[in-house]
Amino acid sequence: MRANLQWLVILTVIALAAQGLTQVLPPYFGQLLILACINAILAVSLNLVNGLSGQFSLGQAGFMAVGAYTAASLNVFGLGFLHGTPLGDQAALLLSLLAAAIASGFVGYLVGLPTLRLRGDYLAIVTLGFGEIIRVIILNIQAVGGARGFISIPNSTSAFLVVFLLSAFVLLTHRFVMASQGRALLAIRENEIAAEAMGVDTTTYKVGAFVVSSAVAGVAGGLFAHYLSYINPSSFDFMKSVEIVIMVVLGGMGSVSGAILAAFILTFLPEALRPLQDWTHVDLRMVIYSFLLIVMMLVRPQGMLGRREIWELFKPRSPQ
């Protein structure tokens, strides 16, 4: 209990520091910082499936979309009576995020239960398909704006909340990996059949990881919606899913800090490349992304950090 309280204090301090940082920095950098943190939450969520349990999901943007639209709809249509005071706004946001997590987790369960019985490459295609189907369905719901997008969502996401949630998810993932359930997931990643032979209920663990991952992605979607106060189905297309996958792969599959590092690099890189774009007048961003992905796979297939965390880099390697 005391350790938990300590962590709570540490997380609050980190989040407060981030809030302070966004006040000091120019607005442009503050905005990038928050977007990078939202991307980092997405990367952490996908890392649970692609990195830790060794499955390959290509539909994370679909779950993000479910979260974003659930949170936005609840907040706009259902919780209007809370708006007005800062405290009320934050309460409405938290309730909406909770609803987003539940909705995305539920959709993740519906998608995961049948598909996770499939092997790697089939799973990739089917999750891609589900991601696209979710997007097409949202595109056809006129109540949330359809193709025009969902406008005038309360702009209540703060740097404090984003960073607090990000640090909390990182901490939880780290503790999860250390626990027996996390070990079971790692065993599935290393060899599914051997894990099954050792008594790990592989389907339950895989579906569980998938549901948690979708729920976290849903929270990220809710934060995203309440930060930009405008969402559009095309923000959650296949490219977004690929971007999240690239973050996980680039950082090192299974490394939480690596995924966050990659999320930051990939959010700031396009901005840093803007002069290049002004000079050549073409959007080379995705060309560079995809090239980076191939080169990374050829030169350093384990990603920047491999399976290690940043804080483990300076420790001597444990003997194999």
Binding site: G120, D121, V245, L284, M286, V287, Y289, M297, L298
Partner: peptide
């Protein structure tokens, strides 16, 4: 793109294939 990875896990090959696909699409747009 594919031959250097032939003895790696199949997941790496799959990610490379996704990368090649994206590269062709975006290079095509440029």
């Amino acid at each position: 793109a594919y031959r250097p990875l032939r003895n790696f896990p199949r997941l790496n090959l799959l990610i490379t294939a996704v990368g090649v696909s994206l590269l062709l699409e975006n290079l095509g747009q440029v």
